[in-house]
């Protein structure tokens, strides 16, 4: 190969590497970093009755003087007003309880699918994925029809004679949990399933051979080895549920005040964009920390796998 051809090949390689590494960064910059900067920018402004409904952060004065006004009042309000702290605490609580419920329901389901005969596996997986073919919003609306006082669930329970008077489930925290667990269960099951199918059944045989009963082997072998799947599923449920807006809005009552709902109110009803942005930034900050920690932990766990 001649010199110039080698140079050409090398520069081609460099170009392809640049594209490979550069493209994700461009993507993240455009669709994550830039919106984040815009939201951060708005959160530091003041609310006004104008278009757009917030003040500019800087003004050019005479003779090259630049005046920058940063308003931290929105953040102070978020931390000082009990309403926001309470909504945040409530959001985290709902997200945590829902994640635990999804895990308790999803693990046995994922395990059953992963250990089922291969001809059943695809059908069972399809059943998990099938709800995604209908709009999320419509599925949550459908729960209103099921849960309301003269809804399907109450009709059924009355017909069966299990209850005398209809239960009031709709617009209670229970309805929010039902809606959240129903909507987010697939996000728990799928990563768990992907993990559990990789588990070598020989390891369980080895455990049995060494005198370990099946239930104990499950907790000593299967559960520790599926930790990456548990973490992935939990993150996929916990993080979106903290900011969940639709489900508490449609199924919840006045006590189901979650941060997502609050954010929506500030933005659309009160047209207080800076306060809504400050809320969004705080929410992001609170979610990023556990996310990065879990990611680290997961990486460590993955390294232990052969």
């Amino acid at each position: 190969m001649s010199r110039s051809m080698q140079d050409q090949a090398r520069s081609d390689r460099r170009l392809s590497r640049l594209i490979n590494i550069g493209l994700p960064y461009v993507w993240l910059g455009l669709f994550f970093l830039l919106p984040f900067v815009i939201v951060l920018h708005i959160s530091l402004a003041e609310s006004t009755l104008a278009q757009p409904p917030y003040t500019a952060l800087w003004h050019w004065l005479d003779r090259g003087l630049l005046q920058i006004e940063i308003n931290l009042g929105n953040f102070l309000l978020v931390f000082e007003d009990d309403l926001y702290a309470w909504a945040l605490w409530h959001s985290l609580q709902v997200a945590f309880v829902s994640t635990v419920l999804c895990l308790l329901l999803g693990y046995p389901m994922a395990y059953a699918i992963a250990t089922s005969a291969s001809r059943w596996r695809l059908i069972l997986l399809m059943l998990i994925i099938l709800p995604f073919w209908t709009s999320f919003l419509i599925r949550v609306y459908a729960w209103i029809g099921i849960l309301q006082t003269n809804g399907l669930l109450n009709d059924l329970l009355l017909w069966l004679g299990l209850i005398e008077t209809p239960l009031s489930i709709l617009h209670t925290p229970t309805a929010v949990y039902i809606g959240v667990v129903y909507s987010y269960l697939p996000f728990m099951i799928l990563p768990l399933y992907a993990n559990l199918t990789r588990l070598d059944p020989i390891l369980l045989e080895a455990a049995a051979d060494l005198g370990c009963r099946p239930l104990r082997a499950f907790f000593r072998i299967t559960v520790p080895l599926s930790l990456p799947g548990i973490l992935a599923g939990s993150m996929l449920v916990f993080i979106p549920v903290v900011g969940e807006f639709v489900i508490p809005d449609l199924l919840g009552g006045p006590e189901s005040l979650m941060l997502g709902k609050l954010l929506w109110t500030e933005f659309f009803s009160n047209t207080d964009w800076p306060l809504a942005s400050a809320l969004a930034i705080v929410l992001l900050g609170i979610l990023v920390v556990p996310f990065v920690m879990m990611q680290r932990l997961q990486q460590r766990l993955e390294e232990n796998r052969p």
Binding site: D200, C212, P224
Partner: peptide, 20 residues
């Protein structure tokens, strides 16, 4: 008698060491 109660042990072909 189930495997976990038998007085025998086995060395597996793939060794089946617990990776964690």
């Amino acid at each position: 008698v189930p495997a976990y109660s038998r007085p025998v042990n086995m060395m597996f072909q793939s060794y089946a060491l617990f990776p964690h």
